[in-house]
């Protein structure tokens, strides 16, 4: 029975199957909201309301010609998309959806899984950098350099922002943090600043406008993905979609009280909360214009990081007051 549960967990929910289906749904949601914010229609025709459009795009890309540049590092170039997908899917397993027991740590929920999840979510950035560098293209190289520069900008504010609710809850385990805020929902409020910072940092992590600098179409063509086509590009796109689901799930688990109530009710919580975060991400995308790479670093270190530290101070004081 335990084996079946684990297999179910790995491959169905929240494993690969769910992540694939839900990430395409999230991409559809993001595209639809983005379009409606701009007074457009968005995907309309594939499936009802265009729900199947991301899947159609995925299949179409799979069928396209797959070109590997002559000068590219072929091994890296081939393996990286699959590796990136594997990393974010593994990160998805750490979300405290079901199949965990608060009292007993398991392989998907243990003390410190927050850190592991953050680490696994940092890896795609490095993978993208390697992919860009191994594809030997000027535009890709510039994109790769931008990816790394941006990483140094947003990663610290994100970690600091996620730290403060964890400190207040006194745990490094996602399930315990979520349970803490479920028990005391009012304590979500002092973390709002950290939530805002985290949303901005996740936006940067997902390389979406205003942080779509590494693949800024009008500047450096495809940027990091200039040389990627066909299956590899499809996998990278899927990787970004899953990363969006996982990081919004992380924010929901840490800031919004997680997904209580077992498999079914928890699923409803997951859908509502991640879609809320994705809505915020879409809103930021629609609201802003792409900024320059130097402005990203300035924004991160001048505003986001000090604010995150301030939030941390507030939380520590609050924790002192409460205990």
């Amino acid at each position: 029975m335990a084996v079946l549960r684990t297999l179910l967990y790995l491959f169905v929910y929240p494993g690969l199957l769910f992540l694939f289906a839900y990430s395409t749904f999230c991409e559809w949601f993001d595209r639809k909201v983005f379009a409606r914010l701009q007074n457009r229609m968005g995907p309309t025709h594939t499936g009802s309301f265009g729900l199947l459009q991301p899947i159609a795009d995925f299949i179409k890309l799979l069928a396209k010609e797959d070109v590997v540049p002559a000068a590219a590092d072929k091994g890296l170039f081939r393996v990286l998309p699959a590796f990136g997908l594997a990393v974010v899917s593994a990160a998805g397993l750490l979300l405290p959806v079901w199949n965990f027991d608060l009292a007993v740590p398991s392989f998907t929920s243990f003390q410190g899984d927050l850190i592991v999840l953050l680490y696994l979510l940092s890896l795609p950035t490095l993978i993208i950098f390697l992919a860009a560098w191994s594809s030997t293209n000027y535009f890709s190289s510039i994109g790769g350099a931008r990816v790394l520069t941006m990483l140094f900008g947003y990663e610290v504010p994100l970690f600091l922002a996620v730290l403060s609710p964890a400190i207040l809850a006194g745990s490094w385990r996602l399930a315990e943090i979520a349970a803490f805020y479920q028990a005391k929902p009012l304590l979500i409020l002092p973390n709002l600043l950290a939530f805002a910072i985290a949303v901005v940092a996740v936006q940067a992590k997902l390389e979406r406008c205003p942080f779509d600098i590494p693949h800024a179409e009008t500047e450096i063509v495809g940027g990091t993905f200039t040389e990627f086509s066909g299956k590899k590009l499809a996998l990278f796109r899927l990787m970004f979609d899953i990363e969006m689901v996982v990081s919004s799930g992380l924010l929901a688990a840490v800031f919004l009280g997680g997904f209580p109530g077992g498999a079914l009710v928890g699923f409803a919580h997951l859908v509502v909360k991640t879609l809320f975060v994705i809505f915020l991400l879409s809103l930021i995308r629609a609201l802003t214009s792409r900024i320059r790479i130097d402005q990203v670093v300035t924004l991160a270190w001048k505003y986001l990081a000090p604010l995150a530290v301030l939030q941390l101070l507030i939380i520590i004081l609050l924790k002192g007051l409460l205990s």
Binding site: R36, L37, N39, L283
Partner: peptide
């Protein structure tokens, strides 16, 4: 923001 949110509940112009 106000303009964007207004269009969210409006019929698309296209």
């Amino acid at each position: 923001l106000p303009e964007l949110l207004r269009s969210l509940f409006k019929k698309p112009n296209t």
